[in-house]
């Protein structure tokens, strides 16, 4: 049984998510990693309220494709920036690997299988660069997804799937 999620999200939307739940995401997701985070915390180029951030940077888009392979990167590298972005309204982050629930307070952390990047690209129906184009593959993107599968790794109560 999958729970369906669609951004923009409210606190009520994420309250129902419990550690271990399987979710399917539809709609718009922001894509950013290390360098874009460093810039976004100083001055965000867009309203982050209710949004979802996916820690990733895709391979270049081949001809006739929407996007290249796009799997998650290690989430904990973004920890230094995450609380500031949660204060700006981020509700969900998506990545891979262990994280400290304290860093995530006020948001929910989802994981997707790392190294399944070609498979995950099949859930992406639209992609565009929103800002920091100079960062190349690390630019801030917005992707639109359908049936993007993820697992709740840390919920709003701070319960973690990791031992």
């Amino acid at each position: 049984m999958h729970i369906e999620l669609k951004a923009p999200l409210s606190d009520n939307d994420i309250k129902k998510l419990k550690v271990g739940d399987k979710v399917l995401i539809a709609g718009k997701i922001l894509v950013a990693r290390d360098l874009a985070h460093q810039k976004m915390v100083k001055k965000s180029p867009l309203d982050l309220n209710g949004s979802i951030i996916y820690y990733a940077s895709p391979t270049p888009t081949p001809p006739h494709y929407t996007i290249g392979s796009i799997g998650p990167t290690t989430a904990t590298r973004m920890d230094a920036f995450t609380p500031a972005l949660i204060r700006k309204g981020i509700k969900i982050t998506i990545g891979k690997g262990k994280r400290d629930p304290k860093v995530m307070a006020g948001s929910v952390y989802l994981v997707v299988p790392g190294g399944a990047a070609a498979l995950l690209s099949k859930s992406v129906v639209n992609s565009k660069v929103l800002a920091y184009a100079e960062l190349g593959s690390e630019a801030l993107r917005e992707i639109e997804v359908v049936g993007f599968p993820a697992i709740v790794a840390i919920d709003l109560k701070g319960r973690s799937i990791f031992k």
Binding site: S57, P58, S69, G71, A118, S121
Partner: peptide
């Protein structure tokens, strides 16, 4: 999928 479509197995090449 990667083998069939010649897509990178992982986005981190």
């Amino acid at each position: 999928i990667a083998r069939k479509e010649k897509l990178p197995i992982c986005q981190d090449c």
